[in-house]
Design a protein around this nucleic acid. Sequence first.
DNA 1: GTTGCGCTTAACCAACCAGTCAACTAAGCT
DNA 2: AGCTTAGTTGACTGGTTGGTTAAGCGCAAC
Lengths: 203, 203
Amino acid sequence: MRRESDTRTKLLQTALQLIWESSYGSVSVDDICNRAGVNKGSFYYAFKSKAELAVAAFEHHWNEKRPLYDEIFSSQVPPLTRLENYCDYAVRDQLAKYEKVGKLCGCPFSSIGSELSTQDEQIRRKAQELGERTMKYLSTAIRDAIAEGSIDARDPAELAREVFCYAKGLIAEAKIENNPDILKCLKKGVFRLAAARSMAALS
Amino acid sequence: MRRESDTRTKLLQTALQLIWESSYGSVSVDDICNRAGVNKGSFYYAFKSKAELAVAAFEHHWNEKRPLYDEIFSSQVPPLTRLENYCDYAVRDQLAKYEKVGKLCGCPFSSIGSELSTQDEQIRRKAQELGERTMKYLSTAIRDAIAEGSIDARDPAELAREVFCYAKGLIAEAKIENNPDILKCLKKGVFRLAAARSMAALS
DNA sequence: GTTGCGCTTAACCAACCAGTCAACTAAGCT
DNA sequence: AGCTTAGTTGACTGGTTGGTTAAGCGCAAC
């Protein structure tokens, strides 16, 4: 390797950005190449197909965010605070993108997953996998909350899925209404679902 | 008018079906025409554009379902039963499609809304409108439930949005995981959110 | 200094895309 | 019968699509 090829990275980032801001179907390989300043040939040297690029971009984006998630969901943080920080981060992330792009773009994993999971098994599987990773963080936090008595629930994994789906659904709705205000009730709904004993009033 | 033109209707139904089963971006006007047995020219005689067809197909599908929604959310039905029947219907609808197509297709309004609301303002607006109509049903049911004392909440519209988003998110997740079992906790989550005093245990 | 190789370049392809159009058909009206 | 007009037909356009390819570049090892 003569250079450790930033081509690949540039393509991953550009792809995620463009697809996040519009959709997989409406972004072409040419669009991605042009924006990334990379030639078509290099694209297909780095990736087998457009779909493979999408999968890799998913994974790449997750890996970039992972340290932050690890911090948010650290065992050092009280479990309800983890949930709260997670909600706050999700909202902040959406608002940042909203101000940069002028549109509410939603969660890229969820949008692309929704768009393509009936068509491309590869992408479906990756979207599922990333969802499961997030639910793992949530499960652990909820389990810890139950242990300390601040949440009363039988099945932490199930509650985690409910919380996760609610969050995804709300963010998707905010995207559809293109209205950041909707994000305001993310935390409220999460804590209502979790039926948290304390801190629910606070949010 | 020489025949009351079933062309338009055939296009509306075919479009919704194809787009529901894959996505807006992956279904071409030719696909829709071929499947509907209609010529390209007739398509563009009936609709100005592909996007306009999609919007009309949304509206058409809603109108077809409306009598059923009116029945489910009838004031003659106890409010919590309305919510329950709504959940049951949503699940039944998904399972029916699943068995027909072999894939979990999700909610068409939500999928297409997610896919296109950053690109096509026309479609975004229609997706938003249809969501608001559904939330209207939910708001009324929740308001009635509060009135009879079976739900305790301050803001019925807000709770309706939370329920709606949760349902949409769960169905989207079921699509992404392509797993009908996930739908099982729809009712449970809805009633947990609503913190219903009775009937919550039952589901 | 030349050979080997990771990577880039730009031209190229067939299939496909949304959308157009002039010619045509047949039902309704007088 | 003859005219009008709503609706149909399918060939066509020009641009775009995802993907290919042969030639070339420049660094590293020998």
